[in-house]
């Protein structure tokens, strides 16, 4: 390995996001290797390693739940935010803003629980609760982001003959993107956590080992599940960090 090559690899390894992804992958696929460690930590346990479903499979389900609900919420939230900042939808803006503020006071876990009597057990209540909850910060930030576009910028865009669609796509949305992304980040962070709790309503997620461990007095399961969920949350958060930098490059030029 040449010197330069070495520093490239070293630099990559020093990147927090890369490190976190690496840690997550190791936890997902290498957890069984830790069995002797957990056996030594809890010598009284018959089964010191969670072997119900693979951690990778649980993580995939977990991410599917988070991804689907966040995508649906992003679509609905951004569209709603766009609608109430156009002249024809402005009448609904006060209501939408009040709803977004008040709604975020509801604890996510309670929203999840209340969804069960409405639609039953399984992935459906989790998907619905996660989507509903995620819409709120996204719509709030979409409104704030679009509102933050300076009036003179819009005035000159119109004055130069840009069509409304072009103004929206090339000026308003790019300028609002960092704020909208921050809302999406809040939503996804809450969803990663709430999806873990969704194991209590019958959705198969990374919370399952924790719930099984808590119910069966198996602390090893709890710790294994908690480690993976925590690593996933950190990876998602660092990923958004990177995305935010990318979207606001011009601000730091």
């Amino acid at each position: 390995m040449t010197g330069r090559r070495f520093w490239q690899v070293f630099g990559l390894l020093a990147d927090r996001l890369v490190l976190a992804v690496l840690a997550l992958v190791l936890l997902l696929y290498g957890m069984p290797l830790l069995k002797p460690f957990f056996a030594a930590l809890y010598p009284t346990l018959d089964r010191p390693m969670y072997e119900g479903d693979g951690f990778a499979a649980l993580a995939a389900d977990h991410m599917a739940l988070v991804g689907l609900s966040s995508l649906a919420a992003a679509a609905a939230g951004v569209l709603a935010g766009l609608a109430v900042t156009r002249p024809w939808g402005a009448e609904f803006r006060g209501l939408v803003e009040a709803l977004a503020t008040a709604g975020q006071t509801f604890p996510p876990v309670a929203v999840l629980a209340v969804a069960v009597p409405a639609v039953g057990f399984g992935a459906a209540p989790a998907l619905i609760a996660l989507t509903l909850y995620a819409v709120l910060p996204i719509v709030q930030n979409t409104i704030a982001g679009l509102e933050g576009v300076p009036a003179p910028v819009l005035e000159s865009a119109r004055g130069m003959g840009m069509r409304p669609a072009a103004i929206l796509l090339r000026v308003e949305l790019p300028l609002a993107a960092p704020v909208i992304l921050a809302g999406l980040r809040t939503a996804v962070a809450i969803n990663v956590g709430t999806a873990a709790i969704a194991s209590t309503v019958g959705a198969k997620t990374l919370g399952l080992p924790i719930i099984v461990g808590l119910n069966g007095a198996n602390p090893a399961y709890v710790i294994q599940g908690a480690l993976v969920v925590a690593a996933l949350a950190v990876v998602v958060d660092l990923g958004f960090d990177r995305l935010a930098l990318l979207l606001s490059r011009w601000q730091r030029a």
Binding site: V192, P219, V222, I223, L227, V229, A230, A233, V234
Partner: peptide, 19 residues
């Protein structure tokens, strides 16, 4: 980072050191 970690995971991680 602490805020990033889901509640259920943080509660779980408290388990080992406290027990």
């Amino acid at each position: 980072i602490v805020q990033t970690i889901p509640s259920i995971a943080l509660f779980g991680l408290m388990l080992a050191p406290l027990s």
